[in-house]
Simulated scan of single mutants.
Amino acid sequence: MNRVALGLCYDGHEFEGWQTQPHGRTVQDHLTKAIEAIAQEPIALICAGRTDTGVHARQQVVHFDTAADRPLTAWIKGVNNSLPPTISVLGAKQLDASFHARFSAVSRTYRYYFYSAPVRDPFKRFMTWVHYPLDLAAMRRAAECLLGTHDFSAFRASQCQAASPVRTLFALNLIEAVDHCYFEIHGNAFLHHMVRNLMGSLMEVGQHRQAESWLRDVLESRNRSLAAKTYPAQGLSLWNIEYPEQYGIQELFA
């Protein structure tokens, strides 16, 4: 059997998340069908991180095992020919069985894009619009308590299936551009809805609806009902996934 790794990106607006569903309107469903057309056999796709409905990926990594012997170009151009224009395979690589798209990953980076303006801008469809002014300095200060290893139960969706709510955040930076902002969050792994739930609570601080110290209180409470609402999906992108250098995964996106 050959183990093939693919690097892909997608616009999540029209998909109901990554994971396969009976109706077939997911990224995994479209990609599986396209790969099977080339492999001429059933395949099982494993991804680095499942994205929710409406969430995008700048860098997603998947792997599958196949008896088919195809040139790497077939897994790129051939598969892309059968995909909708909102999904693209960027690179392919054959690796040994020690590689696993999910379990070999050492960390993941998400970005959440947003902008504050009196009216919505249709061209900023990958960002979340907020119509109120934000205190970005207060948001930065409040976010400092999230760094390190914590129990993130307060920011975990009720349907989350993770065995443990403990995660480690290595960095959480708020970046200001000319007409928008984004949080870049780097961690070992993330719980279901964790980034969007964190964003909802950070926005409460940014609007001065809650004090900066409130975020630490919510974190330490481990109580989801004390945190703010889940923020919209369209501002969130899986930005990067880090692997041991031995696998050369970044070559998929070169």
Score class of each variant (00 low, 15 high):
105 A>N: 04
127 M>A: 06
100 H>D: 08
84 P>E: 06
44 A>Y: 12
34 A>S: 05
138 A>I: 07
42 P>F: 11
42 P>E: 15
115 Y>V: 03
94 Q>H: 14
33 K>I: 00
76 I>S: 02
122 P>S: 04
146 L>F: 11
115 Y>M: 04
141 R>Q: 13
45 L>E: 04
143 A>L: 01
140 R>S: 01
64 F>D: 01
88 S>L: 13
130 V>W: 11
96 D>V: 10
138 A>G: 12
95 L>A: 12
75 W>C: 05
53 T>V: 11
110 Y>H: 00
54 G>R: 01
81 N>Y: 14
144 E>R: 08
113 Y>N: 03
132 Y>P: 02
37 A>L: 15
132 Y>V: 15
140 R>M: 02
38 I>L: 02
126 F>G: 12
62 V>L: 00
56 H>F: 04
32 T>E: 08
27 V>W: 11
83 L>C: 09
117 A>L: 09
101 A>M: 05
57 A>M: 12
112 Y>F: 07
29 D>P: 01
126 F>I: 08
115 Y>C: 01
62 V>G: 01
35 I>Q: 02
83 L>N: 06
62 V>T: 02
61 V>C: 00
95 L>S: 10
68 A>Y: 03
65 D>Y: 03
140 R>F: 07
143 A>Y: 00
36 E>V: 13
54 G>E: 05
102 R>A: 13
37 A>Q: 14
104 S>M: 12
77 K>A: 15
123 F>P: 03
89 V>Q: 03
68 A>E: 00
107 S>I: 01
49 G>T: 03
89 V>G: 06
67 A>E: 15
32 T>I: 05
63 H>T: 12
90 L>P: 01
73 T>I: 14
81 N>C: 11
69 D>G: 07
52 D>F: 04
65 D>C: 12
102 R>L: 10
121 D>N: 15
106 V>Q: 14
82 S>A: 09
65 D>G: 05
44 A>H: 15
139 M>F: 10
75 W>E: 01
134 L>G: 13
72 L>S: 08
79 V>M: 08
138 A>V: 07
116 S>M: 13
146 L>M: 14
133 P>L: 13
97 A>P: 05
33 K>V: 00
121 D>Q: 10
90 L>S: 08
48 A>G: 07
139 M>H: 02
84 P>L: 10
144 E>M: 13
139 M>Q: 04
67 A>M: 15
111 R>L: 06
78 G>A: 08
132 Y>N: 06
137 A>F: 09
48 A>T: 09
43 I>Q: 00
35 I>R: 00
97 A>I: 09
121 D>G: 07
55 V>D: 02
97 A>Y: 08
35 I>H: 00
134 L>A: 11
27 V>L: 09
111 R>F: 09
143 A>I: 06
56 H>A: 04
129 W>R: 06
51 T>W: 06
135 D>N: 12
139 M>A: 07
67 A>V: 14
137 A>Y: 05
142 A>Q: 06
106 V>F: 08
140 R>I: 00
132 Y>D: 01
102 R>N: 08
93 K>M: 15
84 P>Y: 08
133 P>R: 03
64 F>P: 00
39 A>F: 03
110 Y>M: 03
128 T>G: 07
43 I>T: 03
105 A>W: 03
